[in-house]
C-alpha cells in the first residue's frame, strides 16, 4: 500500500467519522470542533489532488473564518449543551439520503468516465505540468510544448474565461455583507 493511499484512508475515515459527529452529537460546541476536523481533512484531499491553492483557501476560509463564525454564533445563542435535538422527520431524513447515497455511488462506480490515465502518455505529461502549476501558471520556458497553456493557472482563468462570474461573486459578497449588517442591527 502506497504512502498516498495510507494518507487517503486515514483522511477518509476521519472525515466521515467527524462528519457523522457533526450531525449526531448532542453537544453542539463539540460538533463545531468536529466540523473543523472535516474542513482540515478536506484540505488534505485537495493537496492530494494537486489543488494546493484550494487547500490553503480551505484552511483560511473554512477552518479559519467560517468555523470561528459558527462558534461565535453558538456562544451567542447559549444553547451549547443540549442544543442539537433531532426533529420529527427522522424516518424520511434517514431514508432518502441513504437512497440518494446508493444512487450516487452507483453512478460514480458504474459510469464509464473518460479518465486521464487511459489517455496518451504525452497528454498525461502535459496535464501533469498544468496541474502542478495552478499558482502562477506554467513557466515560460515550458509553454512551447503545451497547447493552450497561455491561460494556465487559476488567476488567468478567473480574469479571462470566468471574469463575469468573478465580478458577480464580488457583488454577491457585498450584498451578503450589507444583508448581514441589516439583519443583526440593533433596532
Amino acid at each position: 500500500m502506497a504512502f498516498q493511499e495510507v494518507i487517503f484512508w486515514v483522511l477518509a475515515v476521519s472525515s466521515v467519522a467527524a462528519a457523522l459527529g457533526v450531525v449526531l452529537l448532542r453537544d453542539i460546541f463539540r460538533a463545531a470542533l468536529l466540523l473543523v476536523v472535516v474542513f482540515l481533512a478536506v484540505a488534505g484531499f485537495f493537496v492530494m489532488m494537486n489543488a494546493e491553492f484550494l487547500a490553503v483557501v480551505q484552511v483560511l476560509i473554512y477552518a479559519g473564518a467560517i468555523a470561528i463564525l459558527i462558534i461565535f454564533a453558538i456562544m451567542l445563542t447559549r444553547e451549547v449543551q443540549q442544543g442539537n435535538l433531532p426533529n420529527r422527520l427522522q424516518p424520511a431524513a434517514v431514508l432518502f439520503p441513504v437512497l440518494l447515497l446508493a444512487a450516487l455511488v452507483f453512478v460514480a462506480v458504474d459510469t464509464d468516465w473518460n479518465l486521464l490515465q487511459d489517455q496518451s502518455r504525452e497528454l498525461q505529461d502535459n496535464v501533469e505540468v498544468v496541474q502542478t502549476h495552478t499558482i502562477g501558471g506554467i513557466p515560460d520556458e515550458m509553454r512551447g510544448d503545451i497547447p493552450g497553456s497561455d491561460r494556465s493557472g487559476l488567476g488567468e482563468l478567473l480574469i479571462n474565461d470566468f471574469v463575469l462570474p468573478f465580478e458577480i461573486a464580488s457583488m454577491l459578497l457585498l450584498a451578503a455583507i450589507i444583508g448581514a449588517l441589516v439583519l443583526v442591527r440593533e433596532r
Partner: peptide, 20 residues
C-alpha cells in the same frame, strides 16, 4: 422549512432514481 427540504430531497431522489 425542513419539511419542505425533505420534499425536495424526495423529489431529487425520485428523479435521479427514475433517470437511472
Amino acid at each position: 422549512v425542513q419539511g419542505y427540504a425533505v420534499v425536495v430531497a424526495v423529489g431529487v431522489t425520485l428523479i435521479v432514481g427514475a433517470f437511472l
